[in-house]
Amino acid sequence: MTTLSLPLVPSPLLESDAVLDVVVQAGDGFLGRVPAGGSFRIVDLHGNQAADTLFYDAADVTHRYSAVDTIREQGSVYLTAGSTLLSQQLEPLVTVTADTCGRHDTLGGACAQESNVVRYGMHTRHQHACRETFLRYGAAAGIGARELAPNVNFFMNVPLTPDGGLSFADGLSAPGRYVEVRAERDVLVLISNCPQLNNPCNGWDPTPVRLLGWWA
């Protein structure tokens, strides 16, 4: 998959200037606020780690990221540098300003205990899953099941084909690659660092990601 020609756009921001610098362990989550104009970076520390991410208007969690509205308005199913992630009211939430991975999925959704049962069988019913993490970390902001929606899977490779096929493929990412967004309004970022063990979305080995933020 590394034969794909994808736009790689590095960021000028320096790690030493960051006001946020945390590591999210494999299978853990994060909820944070990024003020309008602030920059937020997710670093795939070890490579091929899916960072399942949702964005919300910080003033109203029912005003949330919409994958279908975003891909329709940009005319392409993948997110990459220059993509503006829209709310379901078509308001810009964040714009991808830097990306050293190349492209990211927003149609594969998040793993859940319930969808694991569908995909892999009842023995996976009690495995850790992203939807659990979203609900656990989202609760502090009033984000419940009705506020969840199809998310972004940063660093995940879900190729779609002209004949209508969809698959989960080995990642395009590698250790140290990152994606950075600029907040277009005050936003909440909700992340599940995906614990999935049953498919290649995490290279069969979930690993930590690093979060960096720059704002006044």
Binding site: G109, A145, G165, F168
Partner: peptide, 20 residues
């Protein structure tokens, strides 16, 4: 009160990008 269609789960479970 909350359960509803999940398009990503529908697609990835059946390896499709369309409904047919």
């Amino acid at each position: 009160p909350v359960d509803r269609l999940n398009v990503p789960d529908t697609l990835k479970a059946q390896m499709s990008a369309r409904i047919t």
